[in-house]
Design a binder for these strands. Structure first.
Length: 811
DNA sequence: TCCTCCCGCCAAGCA
DNA sequence: TGCTTGGCGGGAGGA
């Protein structure tokens, strides 16, 4: 017996079939007709049986519509099963993976162009498709339904659909996003997450009832299919099944991504929301399972469309399947789309700005993804460094101090974000140039108008930058100072300091957080927003901070502030404990910032350190891993475990400044300089510093700013006085250790100086939080506001890293 | 063991 | 009445 040759795995074929340029692929050539069957001998019979078992043969038979022969095939199949051993027969069948809906969808999509010519309508005949793809009709419906939900196809008549491709996608996504917002999906997600969390502690609680009531109380009404003007919806069974249709489910699923930040949706949450809407009373397991099944179906199709990508969200309760939005970013208003839609210069016609960017980007950078980093050698080093550090973290034993690993991830995130921003700037520049060269009208105007601060070519430092004034933040006790490079034109803006802002304990970490307004940035972080507010009663309170000028956390922090102001220093321990309690009951967030350099003067005051080492304080500086290239200090869980510094011990001094006006670097003071200058160890932060300064255009590309005490004797300007005042009332200058820097959005970066302020053994007192901000551009709004008692809050938003550790891993 | 999702039954609805 | 469409859940492959 000859085992039939197994079909080559179709997955690879299909994947290669689907070219990146998304050109329409021709229908695969019809397989050659087989020669007439051999005489009916036992051997030939067997051969025929084997070949008949292959789907290709079967489908061919179907195409020939020989009912008699197909019955023969069935018969022969049956005979085959008898003749062949069970295993061999199974092997002759395509594997489960080869029959997956995702693969089928790939095949399906490969038949049609992404952007079909409007003049040439492509029609889809289901019979043909089922025939050519050798699948059951049922499966095609699954695909078509999802495509219909995105208005990529529309039903024309029985058995007949029209292929629209991606022309309608931007409008559809926009509409879906709007509807999703209207339906308050964010709140629902938050609510579900909160209930999940509560359920952990109250497993016997009447979750379903609560859930049902909460959904019932929301103004959510049963939602129908979101249609687009001009795209007619002609579902076969319109009324009865419409609301359960895969189409509607698919749209809702997409909405969840579009309204979420980050755009990661777990299947569980999606299923609950979808169930919650239509079948409140039947929130049982089987319904849930069914929804999950359908979501997998939808997700497979959306994945084939490259709109989502499967990830895994790891949190305390385990690993959950989730999906991440990888489709085009949906702009908040339709204006941009209309603008883009009028552009006729790109081919295929671009009706979405993101697509136009992608197109131009593709043309500019044929390589994909991170390979773009090859454009900048320092990026390679940095990425390698990140990888190394990441490996260290991953190989470190799991520590109960979860925060440290998460903090590390956060740092890595910020680092990557920073470079993404850098790349995006470069890309924007080059894209414009390239587009201008190829098609002058295609220059994305909105980009330039939106990002004036970034319009300067990177690496080319305007002459005025040479006159930037470093401002020193002295730090006598630790022997560390920080230099802040201020652009003279904007230095005056750093005058908003008020000593009253100074004393700022950290009772609630969202006080110190920053939320990036850039959802793309947030995509990179592995958090689940929403379930972060353990201490808050209402899920809406976990929304962006700007929406709630007065929150519980704020009042609590204000109370703490007053309390701390009233307390003498000897009571700091007490206060810290209360802060700790406050954190325990609410959340532990991490200081946000881009950790550039540690000050390298830990050996500058050995006596102090030896005392502190007993308390496990100083060891952070000694043992923190430092990437030789970047100066990034990852903080592995194991390390922080020994250090034993809870996150709330780190209080940042946050200074929000425009990227074109400020940079920061550590400067060693005399005492520190002496020791550090004798040290042969290279300063790991210098490359990062220079990179950053070049990055934000403060220094020309070739110029290197030494991260050494050259700047330390620069007289403190009036602005810096204000800044150094920030330590006047209390203990800013006693702190040291960390300088954080993070891009907030295109126009703002955040610098935060973090001080670990040892007051007593085992004490790391963090007391200071201060913000300064310069106008970052036309779109920036006041990011900070001072309340009457001197506390400050980020009004722009808060990026909070929840204590609950969440990781997203891609398959 | 659990995740993933194929498979096909069968009912609703249409021509 | 036959066909199309699609909701649904069992159960098996795969990790």
């Amino acid at each position: 017996l000859k085992t039939p040759l197994k079909q080559a795995p179709t997955s690879q074929l299909v994947l290669t079939e689907r070219q990146p340029d998304c050109q329409p692929l021709t229908t695969p050539p019809k397989p050659k007709e087989t020669p007439p069957a051999d005489p009916w001998t036992p051997t030939s019979n067997l051969k025929m049986l084997i070949s008949a078992a292959s789907p290709e043969i079967r489908s061919r038979e179907q195409r020939r519509q020989l009912s008699d022969s197909s019955s023969e095939v069935l018969q022969t199949k049956h005979c085959l099963q008898e003749h062949l051993l069970g295993d061999e027969y199974e092997k002759s069948q395509p594997s489960r993976k080869e029959k997956s809906l995702g693969l089928l969808c790939h095949k399906f999509l490969a038949r049609y162009p992404d952007y079909p010519s409007p003049s040439l309508k492509s029609y889809i005949c289901l019979d043909e498709v089922t025939e050519e793809l050798h699948v059951e009709r049922r499966r095609i419906y699954d695909i078509v339904n999802v495509l219909e939900s995105l208005h990529m196809v529309s039903r024309l008549a029985r058995n007949r659909y029209v292929w629209h491709g991606r022309h309608n996608l931007p409008q559809t996504l926009q509409a879906l996003k709007r509807v999703g917002e209207e339906n308050k999906y964010i709140q629902q997600i938050q609510m579900i997450k909160r209930r999940e969390y509560e359920h952990e502690f109250d497993p016997d609680g009447e979750r379903n009832e609560e859930m049902a009531s909460s959904f019932g109380s929301s103004e959510q009404s049963e939602m129908s299919f979101v249609e687009l003007p001009g795209v007619e919806f002609r579902a076969a069974s319109v009324n009865g099944r419409k609301y359960k249709s895969l189409r509607v489910m698919s749209q809702k699923f997409v909405m969840l991504f579009l309204v979420s930040t980050p755009q990661i949706v777990s299947l569980e949450v999606a299923a609950k929301i979808l169930i919650g809407e239509d079948q409140l009373e039947d929130l049982d397991k089987s319904k849930f399972k069914t929804k999950i099944r359908r979501l997998y179906d939808i997700a497979n199709v959306l994945s084939s469309l490259k709109l989502i990508k499967k990830v895994h969200v790891t949190e305390e309760r385990g690993r959950k399947p989730a999906f991440k939005w990888t489709g085009p970013e949906v702009l908040p208003n339709t204006q941009d789309i209309k603008l883009e839609a009028t552009s006729t210069t790109c081919s295929p016609p671009i009706s979405e700005s993101i697509t136009s960017k992608e197109q131009c980007s593709k043309a500019l950078f044929p390589s994909k993804g991170k390979q773009n980093f090859t454009r900048h050698s320092s990026l390679i080093k940095l990425v390698k460094s990140i990888e190394n550090d990441r490996r260290k973290i991953q190989s470190a034993p799991t520590s109960p101090v979860k925060i440290s690993a998460s903090t590390y991830l956060f740092i890595i995130f910020l680092l990557e974000t920073s470079f993404s921003l850098f790349l995006s700037q470069m890309t924007a520049e080059e894209m414009q140039m390239k587009c201008a060269l190829s098609s002058p009208e295609a220059v994305p105007k909105p980009e330039t108008s939106q990002q004036p601060a970034l319009s300067q070519p990177l690496g080319v430092c305007p002459a005025s930058h040479s006159s930037m004034s470093p401002v020193i933040l002295p730090h006598p006790q630790s022997g560390v100072s920080y230099a802040i490079y201020l652009h003279p034109s904007q230095a005056h803006t750093v005058t908003t300091y008020s000593p009253g802002f100074m004393l700022q304990p950290l009772p609630c970490a969202n006080v110190t957080g920053i939320k990036s307004s850039n959802s793309k940035i947030l995509n990179k972080i592995t958090t689940e927003e929403g379930d972060t507010q353990r201490g808050l009663d209402e899920p809406t309170k976990s929304l962006a901070a700007e929406e709630r000028p007065e929150t519980k956390s704020e009042t609590s922090s204000q109370r703490c502030l007053k309390r701390s102001q009233a307390l003498p220093e000897s009571n700091l321990i007490k206060r810290r404990k209360s802060d700790e309690e406050s954190l325990d009951t609410s959340l532990t967030f991490f200081p946000s910032g881009y950790l550039i350099p540690l000050t390298h003067c830990t050996h500058g005051n050995k006596a102090e350190c030896s005392t502190k080492e007993k308390a496990g304080v100083c060891s952070l500086q000694h043992t923190a891993y430092s990437s030789p290239i970047t100066g990034v200090i990852p903080m592995p869980a194991s390390e922080l475990k020994t250090v034993n510094i809870p996150a709330f011990h780190i209080t940042p001094l946050n200074i929000m400044l425009s990227p074109n006006s400020i940079a920061a670097a550590p400067v060693l003071s005399n005492s520190c300089l002496n020791s550090s200058s004798t040290s042969s160890a290279p300063n790991p932060s210098s490359s990062a510093l220079n990179f950053m300064l070049q990055h934000i255009g403060l220094i020309p590309a070739g110029v290197q700013v030494p991260a050494n005490p050259v700047l330390q004797h620069v007289p403190v300007s009036s602005q810096s006085e204000n800044i150094s005042h920030s330590s006047g009332s209390t203990n800013v200058q006693e702190g040291k250790d960390l300088l954080f820097y993070s891009p907030i959005n295109e126009n703002n970066f955040l610098f935060s100086l973090q001080f670990l302020q040892p007051k007593e053994p085992q004490e790391t007192q963090a007391v200071t939080e201060n913000f300064f901000r310069t106008p970052g551009g036309p779109n920036t709004e006041p990011a900070l506001s001072a309340s009457s008692d001197g506390t400050q809050r980020t009004s722009q938003g808060t990026l909070y890293i929840p204590q609950r550790k969440l990781e997203v891993s891609e398959d």
